[in-house]
Write a protein that binds this DNA or RNA. Sequence first.
DNA 1: TGAGAGTTACTCACAAAAAAATGAGTGGTA
DNA 2: TACCACTCATTTTTTTGTGAGTAACTCTCA
Lengths: 112, 112
Amino acid sequence: MIKETSSNASNRKFLRSACRITGALEILSGRWKALTLIHISEGKNRFSLLKQVLPTVSDQVLGRLLRELEADGLIGKTIIPEVPVRVDYSLTDKGAAVLPILEELAEWYDKR
Amino acid sequence: MIKETSSNASNRKFLRSACRITGALEILSGRWKALTLIHISEGKNRFSLLKQVLPTVSDQVLGRLLRELEADGLIGKTIIPEVPVRVDYSLTDKGAAVLPILEELAEWYDKR
DNA sequence: TGAGAGTTACTCACAAAAAAATGAGTGGTA
DNA sequence: TACCACTCATTTTTTTGTGAGTAACTCTCA
């Protein structure tokens, strides 16, 4: 009998069709994503403010992180043409809606 | 000013102390973990049964997956000395408790 | 009686792929 | 010169998948 192919990419495809939770976990499980969402919800809504609260994250990593969160529809950005330019980030409805679920996960994890 | 070191390992450490959700996401975000928990909860509670429902997952990956879920306290195993040997897996209380939260995540994700 | 094939449930070492981090540099001010 | 908010290419680290093999036992065929 011929062994099914199971490359990384085809496994991912299978998983997406087999499991409803996959999509959610894929966009939340990047290393800094949950923490960044929380910080933005607490008013750390600019690149430089996030740098302060995430001191071990480099500029480059922070930039990519914000791009990904935006691409996944969790945050939005507003460019304010001040001098120097200012960019504000904010949670979208979708981003805000996931925070209580993340809190439940944290409580689940803490218990015992 | 001295730049904080930000190696992979030290970032992980920082993250664990800074963010309560990190631990939960770390143990849930392995590729096959959520789906495997669901299958076990639905009675696919043996190595060979899981192989049937996860046809693209190799024996080796499945073995490692089960070891990790067990190490993280999400599943337990019972060895039954039949012939040939039989091993039953089951969700722990902790494993069972996370399923409703995963369902919420799936609903959140589905909503556009 | 015994050789070989088959079963379940794995493990180890290694390779490939993906995720995360780093080095260097950009554009538009003041 | 300095600040803010980035981007690109490359390296390092982690995660995921593969190839080969194990233990203990039963079953079949000669």
